[in-house]
C-alpha cells in the first residue's frame, strides 16, 4: 500500500502582484523524509516555506499537507522560525516560550498541567531542562535555537519545518542540532531551509533546489553541475569532514 505524501504541491504558482516568485511547482514529500530546501537569495525558498505553513495562499494550484490545506492541520505541524526577528530582551522565560507551542485557535484559559508536561518533555528532549526557568534573553545563540525547536515540538507535530536552524549558531552547537534533527527524523518528517547544504548534509535525504522552479534530487545524486545550474554562476563547494593533505613538493 503506497502511503500518501505528507506534503503535496500541485501546479503551484505564487506571484507578489506581477512578480512571479514560484512557477508551476509540483512536489511530493513522503513521510519520514528529511528535506533541505536550497537556492540563492530571492529564489522563493522562503515563499515555499510560507506556503507550507499556510501563511501564504498560492496564486494558482494547491498545497496539501496530510491531504488537507495547511490551515486545517496546524496542530500537526511544528515550526521553527529564524531567530533574527525576535526581541532578545523580551521578559520571558524559556518555559514560557516553549509553552507558546501549545496555543491554538481555540479560546484558552491558563495553561494546563498537560501543557506543562508536554513543554518539559520537549525541553528534556533538547537537553534544556535545567534552563526552563531562565530568562530567554540570557541564553546563548545555540541554546535559544534549541528552545525554539522545543517550542515547535511540544505540540506533538508529525511534520517539522525549520528556517535556517544552523544560522547564527557556532559550529559545535550546529553539529549538536543536526544530531538532534536526525533523531527526530525517526518519528517525524522534517523540512529545513538552509543556505549551508554541506553542513546539514549528514542527515539530509532529499535536496529540493528552488529557483523559481523546483527540482528534486536525492542527496547522493546531487552534483556540482546541478548546483552550478541552480545558483547560476561560479560556486565554491565546501566539503566538510574531509582533511586535505598536501604532500610537500619533491625537491
Amino acid at each position: 500500500m503506497v502511503q500518501a505524501p505528507v506534503i503535496a504541491l500541485k501546479h503551484v504558482t505564487f506571484a507578489y502582484e506581477d512578480l512571479v516568485v514560484l512557477e508551476e511547482v509540483n512536489l511530493a514529500i513522503p513521510a519520514g523524509d528529511l528535506v533541505c530546501l536550497v537556492g540563492p537569495n530571492g529564489s522563493g525558498k522562503t515563499t515555499l516555506l510560507r506556503l507550507l505553513l499556510g501563511l501564504l495562499r498560492p496564486t494558482r494550484g494547491e498545497v496539501r499537507i496530510f491531504g488537507k490545506p495547511p490551515d486545517r492541520v496546524r496542530s500537526r505541524i511544528g515550526y521553527m522560525p529564524q531567530q533574527a526577528d525576535l526581541d532578545r530582551r523580551f521578559p520571558v522565560t524559556v518555559l514560557e516560550v516553549v509553552l507558546m507551542g501549545r496555543l491554538d485557535s481555540r479560546l484558552h484559559g491558563p495553561y494546563t498541567a498537560g501543557d506543562r508536561r508536554a513543554a518539559m518533555a520537549a525541553l528534556g528532549e533538547l537537553e534544556l531542562t535545567d534552563l526552563a526557568r531562565r530568562p530567554f534573553a540570557s541564553l546563548s545563540g545555540g541554546q535559544r535555537q534549541r528552545v525554539l525547536i522545543a517550542r515547535a515540538l511540544c505540540g506533538g507535530p508529525e511534520l517539522l519545518l525549520l528556517d535556517e536552524p544552523t544560522a547564527n549558531v557556532d559550529a559545535l552547537a550546529g553539529e549538536r542540532l543536526i544530531e538532534i534533527l536526525g533523531r527526530l527524523n525517526q518519528r517525524m518528517t522534517i523540512v529545513l531551509v538552509s543556505h549551508d547544504l554541506g553542513f546539514v548534509s549528514p542527515v539530509v535525504k532529499t535536496v529540493v533546489c528552488v529557483n523559481r522552479c523546483v527540482v528534486v534530487h536525492p542527496l547522493g545524486e546531487l552534483t556540482e553541475a546541478h548546483l552550478r545550474e541552480l545558483y547560476g554562476g561560479r560556486i565554491c563547494l565546501v566539503e566538510h569532514d574531509r582533511v586535505v593533505v598536501r604532500e610537500p613538493a619533491d625537491a
Partner: peptide, 21 residues
C-alpha cells in the same frame, strides 16, 4: 488574554502559524 497577548507580542509570526487571530 495573558498567554495569547504574550505570544503575539513575542513572536507574531509563530502565533499566526499556530492559528491565533
Amino acid at each position: 488574554f495573558y498567554n495569547r497577548f504574550l505570544a503575539v507580542c513575542f513572536d507574531e509570526e509563530f502565533a499566526r502559524v499556530r492559528g491565533l487571530r
